[in-house]
Design a protein around this nucleic acid. Sequence first.
DNA 1: TCGTGTTTACTATGCG
DNA 2: CGCATAGTAAACACGA
Length: 489
Amino acid sequence: MLTLSSADIWPEGSVALEEEVVTAAAQAEELDGSMTHSSNGCSSSVSLDDSLTSLQWLQEFSIINASGNQPVPFSGQNQHPLCGHQRLLGSEAPASPMAGDPASMGMPHTPGKPTSAAFSRGPSSSALLGLVTYGHCPEEVDYKTNPHIKPPYSYATLICMAMQASKKSKITLSCIYKWITDNFCYFRHADPTWQNSIRHNLSLNKCFIKVPRQKDEPGKGGFWKIDPQYADRLLSGAYKKRRLPPVQINPALQARVRPGLQARPVGSLPAVAGPGELSISAESQQLLQEFEEATGVDQNWDPCGAEDTISGAWSPGKACGYKRKQPVLRRTTVVKAPRRSSSPLLYVDEQKELGSLKGDFDWDALLDSELCGELSLDSTCHLSPIERDEDLTVRGRHIGRPQQWSPLEASADSTGSHILSETQQSSLDFDEETFLATAFLQSPWPEEDEGGQDKRIDFLCNSGVNLDQLLGLGDSFSGDLSSKIESFL
DNA sequence: TCGTGTTTACTATGCG
DNA sequence: CGCATAGTAAACACGA
């Protein structure tokens, strides 16, 4: 039994265990296809002989472990301290198993999976909410369960997060894939070309260092680690994802939600969902129609894009008005058929192979983290102090109080869904997103009740991770940011 | 065959 | 407008 502390493994931790980690990771990879272990407890002690094979390090990212054998931090509805509206936490997930993942309708649900479903309010509305989440900010979208909204993080950041989440000095490409798909539902259903982008990013980005697999190590590919000197840049948001278009909806799912839409007038919706389609209540359809009318989504919706979607050749850019030129036949005269998205199968396979997702990355927990316990995200995605009157400045940006809600928010009633204007969206700064995400990574425990605190303490006791280590994260975190967080804590 | 890794090309976006 | 960054697509090589 070997216990790894975060100081040992991330990001500049001792490399004394590196060989063990590599070997264990290789073993884990060998068993990758059978990673169906359920959590064998919440201890953060990492046992090389079993936990690495079960990727327990990912399990440790379960913030609100709402599994049936774990106390549920939240029960019922909570007035979310951040956004000032009703939201359901933790315990809601089992009650509405598919709430956050309408695209997985019919898929076996893992009871107690900490699906946060921050703004999903039931199976009928969740799909809609995914669609109407306009100008989303990460704290308003449950990326873990919302298959419609592409996370606003750059691939480099996603990779970095995966690496950091792994708590290992190096991880395999497949682990990166897995972490991303585990924690961002979007990628479970998206065209798998994002994996190409991940690989492209790993190869091209100086931040990532390839660690070749030892000769005697079985498995494919090598390991990847983050260059510590770039880690802070990544985590501090220096590597920004370019601003997102107003709406990034997974057209593959959009097509399922709105089959045959192109044959209908703009703004209209199918009255009855057919087989294999998502069932959307009339109320939800009304909301969606209102949304479309308000935002003009359909005005920008290109039926040709839908065709592309049907054929599986989709990219987020295409879905949001990116008029790609006619494909230029370069380097080859052979026009390959567009790759059909294998995401549904992928998802099925994942469910079968992986069982419960190991990489619980609960965005609700991010919201409810200690950091956010005193901060909120207003409609402009700015952090706002809740309990305090004084304003805050994060990374040079003023943090204001929530000031306005979109009209559609009211129409979304208790859903609490935020519909942000484009201007508001444009104000979304990746620094803050990364800040929050990183803050979560460092302090992923909600401070909502004793159970949560107990778990946190338990983790700290068992994992050998102290707060300083969490806050320090080597050089991966800029000092000013750390001090700000510490001041919040 | 498939996963992995590299490379090139192109386009979009944001910013000075 | 030019540059840097980022995303997408594709070709290709290599090894398990």
